[in-house]
C-alpha cells in the first residue's frame, strides 16, 4: 500500500505534467519512470500493454493500470480523497458537477487549439519541423474565442469552477505554461485582465512550480 504510484513518461510532456501536478496537490508519493520517446519506447509492446495507444503517460497504483491524464487525475482525487488538497475534485455533488463541466470545457474547447499551438510554436522548432502559419493563425483565433469566454467567467468567479482552485484549473496548466513561457503568444492570456489574474494565481502554486522544476531537470 505504501509503495509510491508510478507515472510513466517524461515530465516535459503536457499530459504527464498534468498528472504530476495533481499528485503533488494531493500529496501522494510517486515515482516517475522515464520513457525514452525519441527511441520510440512508447510504441514498444511492453509499453503498449499499459497504454494501447502508445502515448504518455501510463500510470500504475497497486494493481490498477490506467492511462489518459484526465482520467488518472480523477482517480487520484477519488482514491486519495483525504490527502493533500481535499477540494481539488470538489466535496459535494454540485461542486463536482461544476468541476466536470469546466474540465470538459478544457478538454473539448481549450485543449485542441492550445495543443496545436504548443506543437507548432514550442515543439516543432525543437524537433526541426516546419511550422504551418495557416494552422497557427486558425488555432490562435479559436483559442482567443475560448479565452473570451474564460474572461467573462473569471470576472464572476475566482477560478473556473467556482471560488476554489480545482482540477478544472489545474488541467489548463501544462499547455498554458508552454504558451506563456516558451512562445511569444503569452499576450493571449495576459491581455485579458481576469485570465491574466487567474494565470498568475494558478501558475504560482507550489505544486506547479515543482512540476516546472522537474521539467527543467534533464
Amino acid at each position: 500500500m505504501t509503495s509510491p504510484v508510478k507515472v510513466y513518461g517524461p515530465p516535459m510532456s503536457t499530459a504527464v505534467s498534468r498528472v504530476l501536478a495533481c499528485l503533488i496537490e494531493k500529496d501522494v508519493d510517486f515515482q516517475v519512470i522515464p520513457v525514452n520517446m525519441s527511441k520510440g519506447e512508447h510504441k514498444k509492446p511492453e509499453f503498449l500493454k499499459m497504454q494501447p495507444f502508445g502515448q504518455v503517460p501510463a500510470f500504475q497504483d497497486d494493481k490498477i493500470s490506467l492511462f489518459e491524464s484526465r482520467a488518472i487525475c480523477r482517480y487520484i482525487c477519488e482514491k486519495y480523497a483525504d490527502k493533500g488538497n481535499r477540494g481539488l475534485y470538489g466535496t459535494s455533488p454540485l461542486a463536482k458537477a461544476s468541476i466536470d463541466q469546466w474540465l470538459e470545457a478544457e478538454a473539448q474547447s481549450f485543449n485542441p487549439p492550445s495543443s496545436a499551438l504548443v506543437f507548432q510554436l514550442a515543439f516543432a522548432p525543437r524537433m526541426k519541423l516546419k511550422q504551418d502559419p495557416g494552422v497557427i493563425k486558425q488555432n490562435e483565433e479559436k483559442l482567443a474565442k475560448v479565452l473570451d469566454v474564460y474572461e467573462e467567467r473569471l470576472g464572476d468567479s475566482q477560478f473556473l469552477a467556482g471560488d476554489e482552485f480545482s482540477l478544472a484549473d489545474l488541467s489548463h496548466l501544462p499547455n498554458s505554461n508552454y504558451l506563456l513561457s516558451v512562445t511569444d503568444r503569452g499576450a493571449l492570456f495576459t491581455s485579458r485582465k481576469n485570465v491574466g489574474r487567474w494565470w498568475d494565481e494558478i501558475s504560482s502554486r507550489d505544486s506547479w512550480k515543482k512540476v516546472v522544476e522537474m521539467q527543467k531537470s534533464p
Binding site: F53, L66, F67, E68, S69, A71, Y75, E78, E104, A107
Partner: peptide, 14 residues
C-alpha cells in the same frame, strides 16, 4: 469506475 473514466477519455480524445 477508474476504467470507465479511462475509456470515456479515450472516446473524447482518440
Amino acid at each position: 469506475s477508474a476504467i470507465v473514466e479511462t475509456w470515456m477519455e479515450v472516446e473524447a480524445h482518440q
